[in-house]
Write a protein that binds this DNA or RNA. Structure first.
Lengths: 356, 356
DNA sequence: TTGTACGCGTTATCAG
DNA sequence: CTGATAACGCGTACAA
């Protein structure tokens, strides 16, 4: 069954059928209805390849995640973000393919570019810039290939979706300071991850503004186990911190376990602040105070911006900064039940296209 | 740059260039070399859409995971399996796209079939049959569309890759019995998951064969938290079990935490057996005794079988059962250091195509 | 509003 | 081993 067959059955030309299929307005209601009926009856579906060949669009976009699967899924961030991207793709009738390239070696990047960009396999790319990816971004910009980064990389004037990690981390730190904690330690994520550095900067900003010394900073990774170890060291050492701010919720859980292992009470003996806030049952079971970022919305928005880029090739870079919210649990002390802080404690959002 | 251009530059016909690109043997070494050089110089890449249109093959295969992203990644099973599938795709020069359809509603299945099968978007499908999927499998078989299931569903004569969950669970239970444990409880996975049921059957087999009563069985889900709760109930109740066999490693971790919370020593007061064995650091840190299944190899093999199916449409169903191995840690008691049990304690493997 | 004619870049078939 | 030539199924200016 192809366009031609349908056209014959409906007694019209291929063009007309094509217009009906593509919702072109220039078709009379009567003809449209007849053609639609035949299409339904015959169960006709346009051939994807032919469509791509003629339209020069594959309607396939890629989501590049620069880490190994096992690394990725130690945390809910990627799954949730991916879910958002998939939602958006469904709505836009796009196919999403997950690309995984662990390395930034030129050879690997080359292969990726060849397979996806130059063969016109993909219409665009969403890149989760966990690790710094100079080579790839540079190549893509040179090819004028549409792509959107998740997570801002100041070195590139590319489109991106992000939160203001620095402001959010500062917010969280200020919250701890306002609660009277003074020895506040920070357990950081990987140094090569821009977001992790920004969070660290936000922490440092707040500490400096309050005239407090930045506590020991444990370089870690975004996983519970490493955070557990780091927290054990911190809590066993001299000058035990009164509060620990972990760069992710998974890490915060590690801190909580360390406190438990040492018989410390939270928040009595130790306050704990997390960052992420997308695992509801995790938050509920631990009542973790954390900074909530809209992971799903971020994934969704990245696809939406990408669509805009694809539809309008002349378009300049598009940006969007999502707000992050302080989510009050029970791990920082204080009684927040009656304080409507959430609204006030939110970082600023920037609309798409605004310059960040 | 297209075939035509290359042909002109090389002074040959399009056909010849096409043959070079596709590694067709019927090209003289001299011509091949000339064409290859030009291709390299010009950075030419064949257009994927044109290729698909002419060859009637997209070289794209789908991996269908019938759950939400958040559900999927509570466990390492999917990530690792997916990684294996991606490995195989890379080698076979295929693209892998992740499909996620959470429901088995006819409407949803329809949409999936339309978008992928009927539009010739995909050449084939790997289906992770976590939940029973009658509708989809039936439809696919009716359409004679190539697909491979991960996890056997006895109701369908489809191709599949699996382990012998029942035999593996029996093996593990026998191990516990041989260590002298008699009150052995089982914490099961979701009842709708075939693999979970099979593991339960294997447990029951072993208990029955040993003349022991099956302990209380806690229907659970494949996650740590639920297992923790279930274990707390079991361990706090009367007739505290001497051993607990959990249907997955994540669940076993939950059991270990419960034991810890109750001050029970493992394996002194309680033996714990897991199932999965693909998270190395998890195994190492907890020294968990578990049944190891080759998740990555399973994902890889599924793609390989699918390729065979695609290449040879007349082909009947292909099967492969991977062996599962007892991996001895320190949570079941006993000293295994000198016992070369691993080789002996393995379920049987079936080669592809063999009837299971 | 509808139809005509051509182009999209490959693969496949057949003849030489 | 090589080269014409015909599909492959659809989009889209352009004409009617």
């Amino acid at each position: 069954m192809n366009l031609e067959d349908i056209a014959k059955l409906a007694g019209v030309s291929r063009s007309t059928v094509s217009r009906v299929v593509n919702n072109d307005a220039r078709v009379s209601a009567e003809v449209r209805e007849r053609v639609t009926r035949i299409i339904d009856e015959t169960n006709y579906r346009p051939n994807a390849a032919a469509r791509s060949l003629a339209s020069r669009r594959s309607r396939i976009v890629g989501l590049l995640i620069p880490q190994s699967m096992s690394e990725i899924f130690r945390d809910a961030w990627f799954p949730v973000m991916i879910q958002g991207a998939m939602d958006a793709c469904q709505e836009a009738d796009l196919s999403l393919t997950l690309l995984m390239e662990s390395s930034t070696e030129p050879a690997t990047v080359d292969r990726l570019i060849e397979r996806t960009v130059r063969s016109h396999h993909l219409d665009g790319l969403v890149i989760s810039t966990a690790l710094a990816d100079d080579v790839l971004c540079a190549r893509l910009m040179a090819e004028a290939f549409p792509f959107v980064c998740i997570g801002q990389d100041p070195r590139f004037a590319s489109s991106f979706v992000d939160i203001d990690n620095r402001a959010a981390a500062r917010l969280a730190t200020e919250h701890l300071i306002e609660h009277g904690y003074r020895r506040i330690a920070f357990i950081a994520g990987h140094r090569d991850i821009v977001a992790a550095c920004s969070r660290h900067e936000g922490y440092a900003d707040a500490m400096r503004a309050a005239g407090l010394p930045s506590g020991p900073v444990c370089p870690g990774e975004f996983n519970e186990h490493r955070a557990f170890t780091a927290a054990m060291d911190l809590l066993a050492g001299p000058e035990r911190p009164e509060a620990i701010f972990a760069a992710s919720d998974a890490m915060a859980i590690g801190v909580l376990r360390a406190a438990q292992a040492l018989g410390l009470r939270v928040p009595g003996d130790l306050a704990v602040m997390g960052f992420d806030g997308f695992e509801d049952d995790l938050l509920e079971s631990h009542r973790l105070t954390t900074v909530r970022q809209p992971a799903r919305a971020i994934g969704r928005r990245a696809i939406e911006l990408l669509s805009a880029l694809i539809a309008n090739p002349g378009q300049g870079p598009l940006h969007e900064i999502f707000p992050a919210t302080l989510h009050l649990g029970a791990t920082c002390g204080g009684n927040h039940d009656r304080l409507p802080l959430e609204a006030a404690r939110t970082t600023t959002a920037l609309e798409p296209g605004a310059v960040a």
